[in-house]
Design a protein around this nucleic acid. Sequence first.
RNA 1: GUGCCUUUAGCUCAAUCGGCAGAGCGCCGGACUGUGGAUCCGGAGGUCACGGGUUCGAGCCCCGUAAGGCACCCCA
Length: 437
Amino acid sequence: MKPQVLKGFRDYLPRQMILRQRIIALFRGVFERHGYEPLDTPVLEHLEVLTGKAGENERLMYHFEDQGGRAVGLRYDLTVPLSRVVAMHQNDLVLPFKRYQIAPVWRAEKPQRGRFREFWQCDADIVGSPSMLADAEAITVMAEALAAVGLPQATIRINHRKLLTALALLSGVDAARAGGVYRAIDRLDKVGPDGVDRELIGLGVPAGAAKRILDLVTRTGAADTLLSGLREQLAGVPGAAEAIGELEQLFAYLPQFGIPASAYVLDLALARGLDYYTGPVFEASVEQPKIGSVGGAGRYDDLIGTFLGRGVPATGMSLGIERIIEVVEEFGLLPVQSTVTEVFVVAFPETMAAAAGIARDLRAAGRRVDLSLLPSRGVGDQLKYAGRKGIPLAVIAGATELDAGTVALKDLRSNEQRTLALIELPGAVERLLHLEQ
RNA sequence: GUGCCUUUAGCUCAAUCGGCAGAGCGCCGGACUGUGGAUCCGGAGGUCACGGGUUCGAGCCCCGUAAGGCACCCCA
């Protein structure tokens, strides 16, 4: 049997796991500081729970028949499972329900840099508030999470799904076929204005309407100026006034939540592909490295209704761990740690018992301690092992020192070593570790 | 899912026209019996991604497959 993993799936070795867990811990901290509660759901769902929500993306869904003949699928995102949970457990949840979920999802895409078939999403959502305050908080949480990992160059672009629908109506395309118009508009940064113009005309949009749409979505400037301009241009178009009004509220709330104005921008060309969005949509992306968006989301007021029969408003955001790691590594935004161990205890065959006792005492003091399990290795080899793993401190528990009630403490980073009374060891270790921070 | 590029030691890569598979780094051992990293010496390590084909002879040419990457599509 040849050892191998599936295309687009990966093992995470300790060095990578340390960074992943660190980022996850930072995100969890941001989520919990904003009052979000943890949630987890099964990786496998009834296929019908998953289908009908992702539009054309359903071709990327992993699905199969289980041994009992049931049609099942691996979750494609964390938003649909959340909606199912809300519908199933409505009596146990206090609304607005704010939950975060950090968990893997699966998509059968062609792998590329920052794009995998198994990847982790970090979602924070608010269920039960139709207010733009909820959307403003979702954007705030996203901005703070990105700032927590030192990613300030990511700007959150914001748009409104109903605004795009209004543009489609304006162009003479009915709401059912509006998706094509969204996609054409969304490709603005890739194919440029002329390209979008060609694509719109290819969809059957009259040349005049295409030009008008292009004129509207390529405008830049302050959100309130853009929105008041749109209010005039789209007067009488169904849904437009509502969308513009919501965006105006949203942009009024954002400064109140304390996010710097540089962290977000109104981008009238932003579309996003998932079918279930009904209101504001947001997306955070980076220019370098070229991996596209690192997070996104939006409001999905009708999704829970597909399970419940009655609508429950919901909004939230999602961050992609793998892509964020790509950026963090590219720019060295977080320190690289190769081990979680703080102290290594060098032992000799004849001092094994004492060495184990020292390790136990240090652990009781809260230290992370590795004890040599191969004491027949020489001191040099044991120190080499500790050094190669990147462990900062070594305690040498030799007979010479122990007979005098002492022990040698070596700082493997600076090569400084001193002999100290056994009783002083925990304090000395603590001091050396904190000097490092 | 489509198109293109790549794949040689653990890693990064070389190998002229199709003619005996190499280097650096890493690893292991020694110089050095209780002190890692440096230096020197020595050593191990290869199904040339995999499967076919052409040829006297293939790492090199041809076909197929897989994995990785780039561009689409789409997305975190």
